[in-house]
Computed example of a mutant assay.
Amino acid sequence: MARYDGPVVDAHHHLWSDAPAKYPWLAAEPALACPFMADDYFAAAAPNDVVATVWIEACASDPLAEAKAAAALHAAEPRLATAIIAHAPLDASDLPERLDRLQDAAQTLRGIRDIVAVRPGHSSFARHPDLLQRPAFAAGLRELARRGLSFDLMLEPWQMDGALALAAAIPDLPFIIEHAGSPDFSTTEGTALWRDAMRRASALPNIAVKISALHCRMPGWTNAALAEPILSLVEWFGVDRLTFASDFPVHDRTVPFADAYQTFRAAVADLSADGQRALFHQTARNLYRL
Rank of each mutant, 00 (worst) to 15 (best):
E143G: 11
R146N: 10
R146A: 14
R147D: 11
G148V: 04
G148I: 03
L149A: 04
S150D: 14
S150F: 03
F151V: 04
L153E: 05
L153S: 12
L155C: 01
P157C: 04
W158H: 14
W158E: 08
Q159Y: 09
M160V: 00
M160Y: 01
D161Y: 05
G162C: 12
A163W: 01
A163L: 04
L164S: 13
A165L: 09
A165V: 11
A165P: 08
A165D: 11
L166R: 09
L166V: 10
A167Q: 09
I170W: 07
I170G: 06
P171M: 06
P171Q: 11
P171D: 10
D172N: 14
D172I: 04
D172V: 04
F175M: 11
F175P: 06
F175C: 10
F175S: 12
I176H: 05
I176W: 05
I177A: 15
I177L: 13
E178I: 00
H179G: 05
H179P: 13
H179L: 06
A180R: 02
G181D: 01
G181H: 02
G181C: 02
P183K: 00
D184K: 01
F185M: 07
S186A: 15
S186D: 13
S186P: 05
T187N: 09
T187Q: 06
T187E: 04
T188H: 13
E189A: 15
E189L: 13
E189W: 06
G190R: 12
T191Y: 07
T191M: 03
L193I: 15
L193Y: 07
L193K: 10
L193G: 13
W194G: 02
W194T: 01
R195V: 11
R195S: 15
R195I: 05
D196G: 06
D196S: 09
D196F: 02
